[in-house]
């Protein structure tokens, strides 16, 4: 049924890790309602490891579903490892998104980067994967059109 597979629909209707972490160690927002989607992510970080992640998203079905898998995937990862994740990893984890909807998963990647960037800045960390990253810059990620799996 419909344009999304079952896994996407499951993450859309029962998203994991929604809400805001009280006393979060890092918060990142990316996107804007003016573009039709925005994600806010809050992280708990201990010894450079993401121990908890929660999100709130204004966006379409694939934006919500990719926010949900993304928070699942970063939990337990080191900051460096989390920075290696791209939107394609989230799309793969979801079992694919329709071509025109791939770009919605970039939101999660960028929101995570933004949160980690904020954290790194506050703690004076130099992290590989953040060189040249500017949370306020135009998005510069390629939309993967192919739908593997």
């Amino acid at each position: 049924m419909g344009m999304y597979n079952e896994k996407v629909m499951e993450h859309f209707t029962n998203p994991k890790n929604t809400g805001v972490i009280e006393n979060a160690d890092a918060v990142g927002t990316y996107g804007s309602p003016v573009c039709g989607d925005m994600m806010e992510i809050s992280l708990k970080v201990e010894n450079n490891v993401i121990t908890d992640a929660k999100f709130r998203t204004f966006g379409c079905g694939s934006a919500i579903a990719s926010s949900s898998v993304a928070t699942e995937m970063i939990k337990g990862r080191t900051l460096e490892d989390a920075l290696k994740l791209t939107n394609q990893n989230f799309v793969d984890e979801l079992g694919g998104l329709p071509g025109a909807k791939i770009h919605c998963s970039v939101l999660a990647e960028q929101a995570i980067k933004t949160a980690i960037y904020m954290y790194a800045k506050e703690h004076g960390l130099e992290l590989p994967g953040l060189e040249g990253f500017d949370p306020d810059s135009e998005f510069d990620h390629e939309d993967g059109e192919e739908d593997e799996s």
């Binding site: 927002t29 804007s32 003016v34 039709g36 306020d136 810059s137 135009e138 998005f139």
Partner: peptide
């Protein structure tokens, strides 16, 4: 009041 657009054009 949310931030300006930094999304894909």
């Amino acid at each position: 009041t949310a931030q300006n657009c930094n999304c894909p054009a």
